[in-house]
Amino acid sequence: MSIALRAQALLGIALAVAAGGAIAKGELTGDPKAGEAVYARCFACHALTYNRTGPKHCGLLGRRAGSVPGFQYSVAMKRANWIWDKKMLDRFLANPMKVVPGTTMGYAGVKDRKERADLIAYLEQAGKSDVCREH
């Protein structure tokens, strides 16, 4: 690769990162700080460390769907046969009632892709925090 082409490629990468998306394999890298603000939208029903109208979020990534002890899930969520990873969370958060018809999470979803990425980044970071280690 010529120096000019290499410089052009590097510039392209730099622009992609600067665009805030940090695009890798079609996924957005979220900003946990921005995601914390998005998480405030969940406060009517969710908390990190304890079950509310919705289940707690500590330990969400890597957890089997519908598996928090003591939480009464919908039949639909109990039947959801997957582990929550970033990709699955992204799908679910975009349109919960479409991805899990019959879910009790009666919410339109987080429609903005970057906001979802930020929210997932926050949940991932919070899951590793001291607060969540105890829960």
Binding site: A40, R41, F43, A44, C45, Y107, A108
Partner: peptide
């Protein structure tokens, strides 16, 4: 206040669906 703000968001997420 945290609960009330969450409630606003929840209803915002309910109205369109």
């Amino acid at each position: 206040a945290m609960l009330e703000k969450g409630a606003v968001s929840a209803y915002l997420g309910a109205v369109p669906i």
